[in-house]
Simulated assay, not measured.
Amino acid sequence: MGADVMDAGVIDRYVSDLGARLQGSKKQVRDLLTEARDSLTDATEAHLDRGLDETEAQQRAVEEFGPVREIANEYQAELAVAYGTRTLVWLAIVLPLMHMTWEYGRMLFIGPWQDFGTMPPPWYLFVAKANDLTSGIASGVALVALILGRVLARRLDTKLLAKIGAGVALAAVGAVLLGNVSIILATAHVDASRLLQSLPMSIASLITWIVIVRLGLLARRSLSCATIVA
């Protein structure tokens, strides 16, 4: 029987319903749906060989595969872990690179934060130092989460693992965002003229914020994928 006939009817409705319930990477969703369709098609062919008609064979294959809500929940957990892992990898790599690039540009085009003509207050130096450490700490936390995720993958429930990964990613991005906002507000309070940077550093600042926002969206999407898992 042709593949176009085999894919129609009960199987087609099941796969469409399954796909409508999934969130995550489009490619991974497509791969999972293809895998499900192939499994259902193989099962249908087996039932056809046993003498069932096409509709009955497809219905039997779908029943054996499992309720669409249950399968969607299992697939969504896999998608959430994959999306969270991707986000943590980006955090572990991009944050230190972004910070090193910014620091190099700042020293080249602006100079030390402490160079205000007069010694800035101790609280400002504390904020500046904390902001310098934030990206490194957030990157390190993301890396540790990736390693622990690998180690605990067989021990922890996939759904819990997805939620933990997403939570760590969101917290890391939040810390970086807070650090950047804090140093901007502190600098504006101590010497607002320092916010008027050279063109190269203005471009670098814009790129930095674009990266932070992008990472934040990835982290938020990871949490969304994880929290729809029942």
Score class of each variant (00 low, 15 high):
Ser205Asn: 05
Ser39Asn: 11
Arg50Pro: 10
His47Gln: 14
Leu218Tyr: 08
Arg154Thr: 13
Asp49Tyr: 10
Gly51Tyr: 08
Leu152Thr: 13
Ala80Lys: 07
Ala128Ile: 14
Asn73Val: 13
Met6Gly: 00
Met98Ser: 15
Ala145Lys: 05
Thr134Ser: 12
Ser202Pro: 00
Ala166His: 04
Thr208Pro: 02
Leu143Glu: 05
Ala36Val: 13
Glu35Val: 05
Leu97Val: 11
Leu195Val: 06
Val62Met: 03
Val168Ser: 05
Ile110Thr: 13
Gly167Lys: 11
Ala43Phe: 06
Leu185Val: 11
Leu160Asn: 11
Ala20Ile: 05
Phe116His: 11
Gln58Thr: 11
Ile212Val: 09
Leu91Tyr: 12
Leu143Cys: 05
Ser139Trp: 09
Gly140Ile: 09
Leu108Cys: 06
Val181Ile: 15
Arg60Gln: 15
Tyr124Pro: 03
Tyr14Asn: 01
Val81Trp: 10
Leu178Tyr: 12
Ala130Pro: 03
Arg214Glu: 11
Pro112Lys: 10
Lys159Tyr: 03
Asp38Trp: 07
Leu161Trp: 13
Leu215Lys: 00
Ile71Thr: 10
Glu56Phe: 06
Phe116Leu: 13
Gly105Ala: 07
Asp115Gly: 03
Ala166Ser: 05
Ser16Glu: 13
Leu177Tyr: 13
Asp7Ile: 03
Arg69Pro: 08
Val151Asp: 03
Ile93Asp: 11
Lys27Thr: 14
Pro96Glu: 14
Ala77Ile: 12
Arg155Ser: 10
Tyr104Gln: 14
Ile93Met: 11
Gly9Tyr: 00
Asp31His: 06
Asp12Arg: 10
Val94Met: 07
Lys26Ile: 06
Leu196Asn: 07
Leu218Asp: 12
Trp113Tyr: 14
Met6Leu: 05
Phe126His: 12
Tyr104Asp: 15
Thr87Asn: 05
Arg69Gly: 14
Val168Trp: 07
Leu18Tyr: 01
Ile164Arg: 11
Val81Phe: 08
Asp7Cys: 00
Ala8Ile: 01
Met1Cys: 01
Arg13Tyr: 03
Ile228Ala: 03
Glu45Phe: 13
Ala20Tyr: 03
Gly111Met: 09
Arg150His: 15
Arg30Val: 10
Thr101Gln: 12
Ala46Ile: 14
Ser16Ala: 12
Met201Gly: 00
Asp17Cys: 02
Thr44Glu: 09
Thr134Lys: 07
Gly84Lys: 08
Ile228Met: 12
Ser16Val: 10
Ala172Gly: 03
Ala172Phe: 06
Leu195Gln: 02
Leu146Asp: 08
Leu185Met: 08
Arg214Cys: 07
Leu33Ile: 09
Gly9Ala: 01
Trp123Met: 10
Arg13Glu: 11
Ser202Cys: 01
Asn180Gly: 10
Asn73Asp: 15
Asp53Phe: 07
Ala46Asp: 15
Asp4Pro: 00
His99Pro: 06
Val89Tyr: 08
Gly2Ala: 07
Leu88Ile: 14
Asn180Phe: 10
Tyr104Arg: 13
Ile207Ser: 02
Leu160Cys: 08
Arg86Asp: 15
Leu133Arg: 08
Gly165Pro: 04
Trp113Gly: 09
Gln114Ile: 13
Ile203Leu: 06
Leu215Cys: 01
Tyr75Leu: 13
Ala145Asn: 04
Arg50His: 15
Gly19Trp: 06
Gly167Gln: 12
Asp157Gln: 07
Leu79Arg: 04
Trp123Val: 13
Gln59Cys: 02
Ile11His: 00
Thr101Phe: 12
Glu35Thr: 13
Ala142Lys: 05
His47Gly: 08
Gly149Met: 08
Ile203Ala: 02
Val81Ser: 07
Leu40Asp: 04
